[in-house]
Design a protein around this nucleic acid. Structure first.
Length: 380
DNA sequence: TCTGGGGTCCTAGGACCC
DNA sequence: TCTGGGGTCCTAGGACCC
């Protein structure tokens, strides 16, 4: 019998900040980009539950979050505390939590501990060795307890016959929850849920189901495998199985990174008007991104990444109207990150790819630029 | 409401080769 | 004079996830 668990930390970034700043205890906390008094351009990364009561949630524009907080303040409620993302700290906490999980999962026949970290605050892992859902549930409770004791943070765990059900189950009762869905119960468990709860079904796919008058998994199950394939492409056949609670996706250990990139959104869009000052600003931003990407690449390699060179360089350009263009080039020969000229190569190619956007060729309307990005890929 | 930053995967068309 | 088929590589765009 296969038993899989999925762990999801509750309001992870916000909970860590709340834990580390006693003076914020009980306050609404919003971790994200700088709200700049309501003029900031970023989004909310994580809001704690007190902030969610104000309607503030992940991915909400930070300016909107600021307004919600102000509205609450005017009603005599405590305003939200806005904090910047401290990824280094969250990464360290994440590593300790993953170690707690790993300590509860014995190695398989090949000596491998089957824990798949899917993001900084989530992991799927094997509990088949437990032999029963009751035993699996006890192990999950121990993991939650240990995280609470050692890190003073709460986690929600879902248990099911595969990664799909475990993940969806972990989303049902939050925070500090534990949901078990047996293989026998899986199909009925999914039926009343929105089609959007299936990982991989996003806003666009949801829209296409809604056009057919289908909102729930139960509705979507009326489609044949062939109809789903016509609708979704290659993925349709897999979705057909998922709608029925079936998935044989294995637990995979950390996969090799395929690209490293950095992007930056300007505080104000940079005009493209031929003025030297703005041109210099854009070129400097690109050069800084190239340098940062190179630095990160070298750091990854130093930390043991299984590659040492890249072959492809790409840029992203987002205009004031949010339209986004990408350009990339693949070189004949890989460039070793340790080459003295590697950083210059990234910078030179990024600039070369960007040039046409500064004039009529790629930017006939001279739209102002909101964001620039640089990345390297095709590692060797 | 006005939209970050870090990624992965898939698709489609064109070039090129046999 | 009316133009195959398949495979691989590259580029651009888009959907999706946290």
């Amino acid at each position: 019998m296969r038993i899989i668990a999925h762990l999801d930390m509750d309001a992870f970034f916000a909970s860590i900040e709340e834990r580390d700043n006693a003076r914020f205890a009980g306050r609404p906390i919003v971790v994200g980009s700088d709200p700049e008094g309501g003029k900031g351009r970023g989004v909310v990364s994580t809001a704690n539950y007190a902030a969610r009561a104000y309607g503030i949630r992940s991915a909400l524009p930070i300016s909107t979050a600021w307004r919600y907080s102000e509205a609450a303040r005017k009603k005599g409620l405590p305003p939200a505390v806005f904090l910047e993302v401290n990824m280094r700290k969250y990464g360290e906490v994440s590593e300790r939590i993953m170690e707690i999980v790993r300590a509860h999962v014995p190695p398989d026949a090949d000596g491998v501990i089957l824990v798949e970290q899917s993001s900084v605050d989530e992991a799927s892992f094997e509990l088949s060795f437990a032999g029963s859902y009751e035993k699996a549930e006890r192990i999950a409770r121990e993991i939650k307890k240990e995280i609470k004791e050692k890190e003073r943070l709460t986690a929600t765990i879902g248990i099911g016959p595969n990664k799909l059900i475990a993940k969806i189950a972990s989303d049902r009762q939050k925070p500090d929850g534990l949901t078990v869905v047996s293989e026998a119960a899986a199909e009925k468990f999914l039926e009343p849920l929105s089609i959007r709860t299936i990982p991989g079904v996003g806003p666009k796919a949801e829209e296409r189901f809604l056009e057919k008058g289908m909102r729930t998994v139960r509705d979507a199950k009326r489609l044949t495998k062939a109809e789903l394939t016509t609708m979704m492409g290659k993925w349709g056949a897999e979705l057909y199985e998922k709608l029925r609670g079936r998935s044989d996706a294995p637990i995979v250990l950390d996969s090799v990174q395929k690209s490293i990139g950095e992007q930056t959104t300007f505080d104000e869009d940079i005009p493209v008007n031929g003025k030297l000052k703005d041109r210099k600003l854009l070129e400097a931003a690109l050069a800084a991104l190239a340098a940062d990407v190179h630095k990160r690449l070298r750091r990854e390699i130093a930390a043991g990444a299984p590659f040492k060179a890249f072959r492809s360089i790409g840029i992203t350009v987002r205009f004031s109207d949010f339209t986004t263009k990408t350009r990339s080039v693949t070189l004949k020969e890989p460039v070793a990150a340790s080459d003295t000229t590697a950083q210059k190569t990234i910078q030179f190619q990024a600039l070369r790819l960007f040039m046409p956007f500064m004039d009529r060729r790629e930017n006939p309307l001279h739209k102002a630029i909101r964001l620039l990005g640089v990345k390297v890929e095709r590692f060797k």
